[in-house]
Amino acid sequence: MAWIETVVNGLLLGGLYGLIGIGLALVFGVMRVVDGAQGEFMVMAAFFAVIVLAAAPDLHPLIIFGLAILFSFCVGYVYQSWIVNRSMQSSDPLAPLLLTFGVSIILRSVMVEVFGADLRGLQLGSLSRASIAIFNINIGVMPLLTLATSIALFLLLQWMLKRTSFGRIIRATADRRDIVRLFGVKPDRVYACVMAMSVALSAIAGLFLAARASFTPFSGVERLLIAFEVVVLGGIGSFWGPLIGGLALGVTQLVGLKWDPNAGLLYCHLLFFIMILIRPSGLVASRS
C-alpha cells in the first residue's frame, strides 16, 4: 500500500514537473530557443502573488492567481519583443542562450537582494494543507489540483494548437518563419505571444509550488535541469511529451527516494541518461 501511495504521490509531483516543462517545450518547439530564465519567471509569479496577498488579504485566491498569470503574460510578451527577438536575428544559437541565462541571473539576484533568500509560502488558508483519502491513500488537495490543472492545460494547449487559426499560425511560423510573412504574419509578434503563454504557464507552476510547499528565489534554477529533462524526455518539439516525461520523472524521484533516502534526484538523472541513450530523440517521437 505504501508503494502505491508513493507512486500516486509521484504522479502528483509529475504534474508539477510537466507544468514546468510545458512552457519550455513550447518555446523550444516554436522558436528553437532554450530559455534559461523560465525558472525565474516561475518564482517571480510566486513573489507577485505573495505581495498581492499581503496587500489585500481578503482577495479570493483565484483572483490573485489570475492577476499573477496576467502579470506574467505581459512580462513574457515584453521579454520576447524587447529582448529575445533581437538576439534571435543573430545566426548563432548561443546568443539567445547566453542572453536568457543572463536574464535569469539578473532576475534571480535582484529577487535575492529585494526579498531575501528565506523560505516563503503562499498561505491559502486551509486549502494549502487539505488532503482527502481515497482507498486509504492520503492525497493532498493542492498536489491533486496541480495534476488536474496540468492535464487540463495540456489539453487546452493541444486544442489551441491543433484546432484554432492562431494555433495554425504558430505551427506554420515554427516550420518556416520567413514564408509566413508572405501571408501577412509577423513572426516576431507570434514569438511574443508564444513566450507570453509560456511564461504564464510557468507562472501557474510557480503558484502551485508556492501554494503546496515553499519557495525561495532559487526554486526556479534548482528545477531548471529537471525541466530540461522533462522536455528532452518528452521529445523536443512534441507537445504531449512533457506531461508524460514529467510524470515519469515524478514517479521515479519518489520511488527512488523511498528506496534510497539520500539519493536526491539521482534516479531521475539515471532514468534520463539511460532513456536518452536508448532513444536519442526522446520518448515521444518528435513532430518534425
Binding site: 543573430s90 547566453l98 542572453l99 543572463g102 541571473i105 539578473i106 534571480r108
Partner: peptide, 14 residues
C-alpha cells in the same frame, strides 16, 4: 555583482 554580470551578458548579446 551577479546583476552586473548578467547585464553585461544581456547587453553584449543585444
Amino acid at each position: 555583482y551577479l546583476v552586473a554580470l548578467g547585464s553585461v551578458a544581456v547587453g553584449t548579446m543585444l
